[in-house]
């Protein structure tokens, strides 16, 4: 039982990281109906910003996190303006391929400057409490709590503010909203800034929890976060959170009770089964199709 509880705690930690990245995918999808395949690599850049801030600038945890989030948000907005904006009227797939290209660019650009995996220094002194046989580390608590705070904050922004209302409006109907005087470009930039900075926060946490980082770390984590977003119903913010936690739980629990090499296999097989029974994810709704 304690073993199980211990794994649940690990699952929460991994799930909150997946959920944060999945939010970036789902927000961009909701507003542009475009899969931003560079998002996993922005997560990686976030981890590298954290590494730079911690190693060369010797900053403590909170400034590191903020710097990483701000830097990646700026990068995300720039990418949107330079690479995605000219393609808004183009076929949807061109934008997706552009995103793949941007992702490859980020990976290989980082690779040029950091050909070897880097080690991130510990920023948070790791204390471990044992409660009822379950070892809880301070790092885990901070990651889970921070992720929850960020998610609640995002939910409030989307549901309670003017910006959030504009975001929801654009994802509802893209053609009519600009006519109502909503500055669409600004809202899209804000969406990218928020989404990518959440990814950077996830990257920072990930690099603290698993301190060896390399330029290709974003690929697999990014795809998995994308899967979380789809499981929850892509375009749906609460769905992305649920999907992230589900994927984290499945991965950790499979690794805990089966040989760990089965992890990917079981996780993806479950995904296939889920998509057969709920083709639009857990919270997603099929859009009506007209002929």
């Amino acid at each position: 039982m304690t073993y199980f509880l211990q794994q649940v705690l690990n699952a929460l930690q991994l799930g909150s990281i997946y959920a944060l990245i999945a939010l970036g995918y789902t927000m961009v999808y909701g507003i542009l109906t475009m899969i931003n395949f560079a998002h996993g690599d922005l997560f990686m850049v976030g981890a590298f910003f954290c590494f730079i801030a911690a190693t060369f600038l010797k900053l403590p945890f909170v400034p590191t996190l903020l710097l990483s989030m701000a830097g990646v948000a700026l990068l995300g907005v720039t990418i949107e303006r330079v690479a995605y904006k000219p393609l808004r009227q183009a076929p949807r797939v061109s934008a997706i391929i552009t995103a793949l290209g941007v992702g490859l660019f980020l990976e290989n650009f980082t690779l040029v400057f950091s050909p070897y995996p880097q080690h991130v220094p510990t920023l948070i002194e790791n204390k471990t409490w044992i409660i009822g046989g379950v070892a809880i580390s301070s790092l885990q608590v901070i990651i889970i709590l921070l992720a929850l705070v960020l998610m609640i904050l995002l939910d409030l922004i989307v549901r309670r503010t003017m910006v959030g209302m504009a975001m929801r409006a654009i994802s509802w109907d893209k053609s009519i909203v600009p006519l109502m005087g909503v500055p669409v470009n600004l809202i899209i930039s804000i969406t990218f800034a928020i989404g990518t900075s959440l990814g950077a926060a996830a990257g920072t946490m990930y690099s603290l929890a698993f301190p060896v980082i390399d330029p290709y770390m974003g690929i697999l984590v990014g795809w998995k976060a994308f899967i979380s977003a789809v499981v929850g119903g892509i375009g749906n913010i609460r769905g992305a959170m649920i999907g992230g936690f589900i994927l984290g739980a499945v991965e950790i629990l499979v690794a805990a009770f089966l040989p760990s090499t089965y992890r990917d296999f079981v996780a993806f097989a479950l995904l296939l089964v889920l998509l057969i029974f709920r083709p639009y994810g857990i919270l997603g709704k099929p859009r009506p199709q007209k002929v």
Partner: peptide
């Protein structure tokens, strides 16, 4: 996009099965 995920998952499953 959901079908894209199915193909992606298949890619990962094939790789994972071979590894195991």
């Amino acid at each position: 996009d959901y079908l894209a995920i199915v193909t992606l998952a298949l890619n990962m499953i094939v790789k994972s099965v071979i590894e195991n």
